[in-house]
Every structure is written in structure tokens, then in C-alpha cells.
Amino acid sequence: MRLAIAEINLQALAHNLAQVRQFAPNSKVMAVLKANAYGHGLVKIAQHLNDADAFAVARIDEALALRAGGLTKPIVLLEGFFHQDDLPILLANNFQTIIHDENQLRALENAKLDAPISCWLKINTGMHRLGVAPTQLNDFYQRLQATNNAKDTINLMTHFSSADDVNDPKTAEQIALFDSLVQGKQQAHCLANSAGIIAWPAGHGEWVRPGLMMYGVSPMLNTSGKDHQLKPVMRLTTKVIAIRDVDAAQGVGYGGSWQSTQPTKLAVVAMGYGDGYPRHAKHGTPVVIAGKRYGIAGNISMDMISVDIGENADGIKVGDEVVMWGPELPVEEIAQCADTISYELLCNIAPRVSYEYQR
């Protein structure tokens, strides 16, 4: 009997990509696949995103894995390259690179390449992570146009810092700054991440970069994917491996931090932080067994979690399926219970979890 399983719903994936098109009908879609496609399986997910116009990853090894998996769409390296020796690899595999600092630009200018590389120039409009300063833009832009190692079309990009909050004026300020900086530069523009796609249509540009929303999870504060007509792609499940009787006032799990107020039964389920489930999930964090919610009792262990199923146990038995998150139980809710974000939960799925891809 297999225990921890991540069921990946490929129809939900296609639905979510279609929703991206609904939100940004006039933009091309650069599907973001970094961090193993947000924990969903890099190559498998890419193979089922035929309607995307391009892929985006963080690092060159992710891009190479896509090419090894037979993917031929354009691939953009969101962090760019890290050494001049990477440039022939980019050229040979038709990778597009972000240019975001002087070291990258100088390396590109000094390289000896047989053909030019497609480049995106990233502008720091307020995220203060990667990107050239607004005062540097024209110099970088002109140098990229001048070098034979960059294609003539220099695309322009930025990244939003607070697009998940519709009440924060920062995103509107970033859009306005970007628009003012790129006036007269007719190349393709790319501003919007998932939150920008949903909430900030003025920032859609010629390209959008959906990440989290493609996997059916809300990028917005205090909402679920369902609120934006998205469908969860991952359903994380396991099995009940034991049922235990516990008297009142007995501590459960490491440290005995949870105590029942009355005699009850516990379902021990095969899931823990060794599978990627958040160790800091609070007592009472829900799971679903036989269509009903029950709360976690005690601290999360490496391989097991105890669940309070009540004195009558509702007929629950060893071998029953337990849903840790999925369509029945939004991952956004589990993230709140663990004081973290959905991104981290999805990306932390451990290698020992089995994946099942369902059409």
C-alpha cells in the first residue's frame, strides 16, 4: 500500500491556464516552472502546458531539464546566468536570459559567441531584489543594443513587490514608474506575476508570468483559488495506519503539548515533516477523512501525525484515505494554520512522496 501521494490533476492545470488567458486576453503567457513547477513536477507539468507561449525558470539546470525532457518552447532564465562560461550553453539551447546587473552585462559584452542571445532587461521599480536602477536603464539598454552578443530586440521586465494586496498603492506606483521609463522603447514588456494578472490589469503588458495561480492557488491575500475560479492541481493524501484509544488528560506526541479533555480516539496517519508537511501546523489544523474534517492532535512528527477523530470514530479504519490538502481542503488554509504561505508548502513536498498524474 502506497502512503503519501501527491495527485496532480492535469485537467485542473489546463483550466487554470485558460483562466490566465481570461484575465489577460491580450498578453502572451510565460508559464513559471521554477522550484520543480512549485512542487508539481517540472517536466511533467511543462509537457502538459502546450498552450503556454514560453516557460520561465530560475536557474539553468531547470532549463536544461526541460530541454532534456523534449520541451522546445522558449525558456527564460529569471535569474539570468551566473558566469560567462554559461553563455555558450544558453546559445546552444536557445535559452533567453535576464540581464539585471553590471557583471552580467559585462560578461555578455566580452563573450565570444557564434550568434546573439535573446535578452530581457530587468528594471528595479521598487522590489529592490534584482534589476537595474531606473537611472541605469538607458545606459544598459544602449549597451545591449550595441553588442553583437544580444539580439536587437531587448525586452523589458520588472517585478511587483505587493501585488497581492489590492489596498497597497505600491503596485500602481511601480506600474507608473515602469511605464514612464520605457516610453519610446517599443519592445515587449512583462510586469505581472500571478497577483498582477488577477488584480492589476494595467500591468499586463505584452507578456504575463503566471506562477502560483497556474497550480490553482490564490496569490492574493485572504482568498482561496476558488475565489478566482481556479482549481487546485495538487491533492496531497495519505492513509490511516493505526487507531488508538486515549484517555482524558493524557499528553499526545512529542512534548505532550496536546491533551484531550475527554476519552477519544486518535487516527495515526502516515505523513509528517519528512514528507514536506509543515512541522509548525497548529493543534486543530484540519485534515479530511471520509469527507469529514478532523483536527490534528499533538506536534507533527517526521513520519506521522495524530488526528482526533472522537470517541465514536465515525467508522474510520486503518487504510482509510486522509486528505492533507486539495480541492476538499485548500492549501491556503493549511498555510495559515502553519503561519507560512502556500508557496512553501507546495515547494517542500519531499522526494519520498509518490506522484500520480491524472488526465
Rank of each mutant, 00 (worst) to 15 (best):
A248Y: 11
I309W: 02
Q336S: 11
V246K: 14
V208A: 07
A6L: 12
A150G: 03
D247H: 03
G41R: 07
I296K: 13
N9E: 08
P278E: 02
A12L: 13
A92D: 14
H280M: 08
G203V: 04
H83N: 08
P210W: 06
G253E: 07
A290C: 02
Q262Y: 04
H48M: 04
I175A: 04
A290P: 00
A14T: 13
W325N: 09
G295D: 09
A267W: 01
R59Y: 09
L90Q: 00
Q358P: 00
G319W: 12
G225L: 08
I99A: 01
Q358K: 15
L191W: 05
H128T: 11
Q96P: 04
F81K: 15
D179C: 04
Y277D: 08
A192G: 09
L77M: 08
D179S: 11
F160H: 08
V32Y: 03
S27P: 07
C347Q: 10
Q145A: 06
V233Y: 14
L236V: 09
I241H: 01
N312P: 01
P263C: 09
Q84P: 01
T238R: 01
Q19P: 03
C119G: 12
L90W: 02
F81P: 06
I300F: 08
M302Q: 15
A46I: 12
I241M: 06
L13H: 07
P219A: 10
A133D: 10
D247M: 04
E109D: 06
Y38M: 11
I197H: 04
P25L: 09
A37T: 04
L108P: 04
K112W: 00
S342H: 06
V32K: 05
C119V: 13
A52L: 11
T158C: 15
W325Y: 15
Q136G: 05
D61E: 15
L49V: 07
K122L: 13
F81N: 09
K282C: 06
A68I: 06
A14K: 14
T158Q: 03
G295S: 12
K73H: 12
Q187H: 15
V353M: 04
L66G: 04
F81S: 10
T135E: 15
W200P: 07
P330E: 08
L66C: 13
Q186D: 09
G291A: 01
K112H: 04
A188I: 02
V287Y: 07
L3P: 01
K317Y: 10
M234R: 15
R2W: 13
M127W: 00
R359A: 13
H189K: 15
P25D: 12
W207M: 14
Y215Q: 10
Q19Y: 00
T223R: 12
V182S: 09
N93C: 05
Y294I: 02
M271Q: 12
I296A: 10
D114L: 02
T147K: 13
Y277G: 08
I117H: 06
A6R: 14
Y273T: 07
L266T: 01
T147P: 04
P219Y: 11
N50R: 07
L137A: 02
F160T: 13
G196V: 13
G274Y: 03
K122E: 09
C337Q: 13
Y215R: 14
A68D: 15
A56F: 00
V20R: 03
R359K: 15
T285Q: 08
K112P: 01
